[in-house]
């Protein structure tokens, strides 16, 4: 379980807090989306979890252990795929395993297995430029999975894609989440995307970020995009949009 306890944070040089006394928990296996206005501190949460930034006070723990005492607990998938253009697809997804000093054989087996599972095995020796945007995001997701971390931090991974690819990838992501049973924190600006994917939506309504407004999504898995057309979901979507507009 991921736990934020009274976390305070401000960026160097800032005289205001981005995050103030923030506390929240995420249970193992949950899929939670975070939505909020630009600059409200959503990505800062990921930077704190990734240890790219350190909180001024408060604690961030995974299963009650402070994150600075554990390794390889989370994996990050950014908005841009950030695949290394000089590496083949296979070598790109091996990158996290190289950091863990896995053997060549292990890397070979795991990467090929994963590529096969996501239908990209035939592209293993291709370079990122040979793939479409959607395929590159799938490769980026595979790379995140191959870190072996239980917590996946997905930061607007589909925002740069066209709407059709986006729809396909959302459904694909849900099936992958159910298959690998990872805990997912998903940042998005898209209310519909948040509702479609998550069990809960955390809405950022304050600045500095002091708390989330939590919304349970009344939908079961597996889901398809028709689920979004039911009256209670449309009502929830409207409610969230109104909430975000107020914030803006």
């Amino acid at each position: 379980m991921l736990n934020f306890d009274n976390v305070n944070f401000k960026y160097k040089g800032d005289d205001f807090y981005t995050i103030r006394n923030l506390s929240f928990s995420v249970l193992d296996g949950e899929f939670i989306s975070i939505i909020g206005a630009s600059g409200c501190g959503k990505s800062t949460i990921f930077r704190l979890i990734n240890s790219l930034e350190k909180p001024e006070s408060g604690s961030i723990t995974i299963d009650s252990i402070p994150i600075h005492k554990i390794k390889n607990y989370s994996s990050y998938m950014p908005q841009k795929d950030l695949l290394y253009p000089w590496r083949t697809i296979k070598k790109n997804i091996c990158l996290p395993m190289e950091m863990q000093n896995k053997t060549k054989k292990e890397m070979e087996e795991q990467s090929e297995k994963m590529l096969k599972e996501v239908g990209l095995l035939e592209y293993k020796n291709k370079y990122p430029r040979d793939l479409s945007g959607g395929m590159r995001q799938r490769v980026s997701f595979v790379r995140a999975i191959l870190t072996g971390a239980n917590l996946l931090l997905l930061d607007e991974p589909f925002s740069a894609l066209d709407s059709i690819t986006k729809i396909a990838l959302r459904e694909w992501l849900l099936s992958e989440w159910q298959k690998y049973k990872k805990t997912v924190l998903f940042i998005t600006h898209d209310v519909e995307e948040a509702i479609f994917l998550s069990q809960k939506v955390f809405v950022v309504t304050t600045q500095p970020l002091t708390h989330f407004e939590e919304y349970e999504i009344p939908l079961n898995y597996p889901r398809d995009r028709n689920c979004l057309n039911t009256s209670n979901i449309l009502q929830l979507k409207e409610e969230l949009i109104v909430k975000l507009r107020q914030e803006n």
């Binding site: 990734n50 790219l52 950014p78 990158l95 996290p96 950091m99 863990q100």
Partner: peptide, 8 residues
Amino acid sequence: ELLITYGA
């Protein structure tokens, strides 16, 4: 930063 998150 991505590489750092992998423990580089």
